[in-house]
């Protein structure tokens, strides 16, 4: 860190005490840009809130507790979309976490180095595939497979009743899992590769097997970082619009089955905003955006704090 381009702490203060006029102006300009960026992101939240205010006032607390969304009668309740968002994200993470961590551990600990490097880079590149491409694939390829092959075989599961459709909650969750997988695999693999060789050798020296080494030396060391990556993935899944809008089925009701069509907050906005002509309709959709924004900010702040605490731990142990 000390070699990097920053002069921190006391040195910097001593150096900046006697600044020339030009230098002081330069500093002010940089600070001004910093403040400008803060203003932009505060403005995002403030603008949405101001636009959503009429709907909030119209619906009152019923906006977050109501289960009916009926623009033609100006009834706006967000519960179906909050439920749809939480369910799809939960399905996505429940699938992506075990598969992603398993895959990353295999790449980092078991696969030959060359294969691991090549597959790792492939996975990292896949993280850059646009979400609209995931959506297209989910809608045109995975949807029919779900309708014809997978969903008819799931009827023994609780909460999986209903006619098999090429859209629905489960399909949206699976697409989200596929989307966040590359991120989870890449981060977990990097963290595992960063575990010092000495702690691995300590377990081997005691006669431990490779799996015992992974369990006692690698997994505890990377736990917090993986949780941070998972929470970041959760943030991405909650706000994902395009991939979900393709396959969710656009039904404005609380889903009563795992395979029922539903609606998330983001897909609702994508579907209805350009056709919102009823009173308070556009404003109510902006209200949904405010709720989504609040959830996303909380989740991302949490992830950031987790990642910071990891880097502090690493700094303290080194």
């Amino acid at each position: 860190m000390s070699a990097g381009y920053v002069t921190g702490g006391r040195d910097r203060r001593r150096l900046t005490r006697h600044l020339r006029l030009g230098d002081r102006a330069y500093r002010r300009v940089l600070q001004g840009f910093g403040v400008f960026v803060l203003v932009i992101f505060v403005a995002v939240g403030a603008t949405l809130f101001i636009q959503a205010w009429p709907a909030f006032k119209h619906s009152g607390p019923g906006f977050v507790t109501g289960t009916t969304w009926d623009p033609s009668h100006a009834i706006y309740g967000a519960v179906p979309f909050i439920a749809g968002t939480l369910f799809t994200s939960a399905i996505g993470l429940a699938l992506a976490i075990p598969i992603g961590i398993g895959a990353a551990i295999f790449l980092a600990e078991y696969a030959p180095r060359r294969i691991s490097g090549a597959l790792g880079m492939l996975v990292e590149l896949l993280a850059a595939v646009p979400s609209v491409v995931y959506g297209l694939w989910g809608f045109l390829v995975l949807g029919p497979i779900f309708q014809n092959t997978i969903e008819p075989r799931l009827s023994w599961l609780p909460f999986a009743h209903g006619a098999p459709l090429p859209v629905g909650l489960l399909l949206a969750g699976v697409i989200l899992a596929v989307m966040v997988l590359p991120t989870i695999v890449a981060v977990t693999r990097d963290l595992a590769n960063a575990v010092p060789a000495t702690s691995r050798e300590a377990v081997f020296g005691l006669g431990g097997t490779r799996w015992q080494m992974v369990r006692t030396a690698v997994l505890p060391a990377i736990r917090t970082g993986v949780v941070g990556a998972v929470v970041l993935g959760l943030g991405r899944a909650l706000g994902e619009t395009m991939a979900v809008t393709f396959v969710i089925g656009n039904t404005n009701a609380v889903p009563n089955s795992l395979i029922a069509p539903a609606q998330t907050m983001a897909s609702l906005i994508a579907n209805e905003f350009t056709e919102a002509t009823e009173p308070f309709h556009a404003s109510a959709l902006l209200g949904i955006a405010v709720l989504l924004l609040v959830i996303a900010v909380i989740v991302n702040a949490l992830a950031r704090l987790l990642v910071w605490s990891v880097s502090r731990e690493v700094r303290e142990t080194v």
């Binding site: 910093g34 960026v37 803060l38 992101f41 403005a43 995002v44 603008t47 949405l48 636009q51 970041l232 943030g235 991405r236 909650l238 706000g239 994902e240 619009t241 983001a266 906005i269 994508a270 905003f273 959709l285 902006l286 955006a289 989504l292 924004l293 996303a296 900010v297 989740v299 991302n300 702040a301 992830a303 950031r304």
Partner: peptide, 24 residues
């Protein structure tokens, strides 16, 4: 503060940013 806000902003749902541009 800027660093923290920027980190959080990196995870904002893209659709909310679209609505922001629509509004302004």
């Amino acid at each position: 503060t800027v660093r923290f806000v920027v980190d959080v902003a990196a995870g904002l749902p893209a659709i909310t940013i679209g609505l922001f541009a629509y509004a302004i």
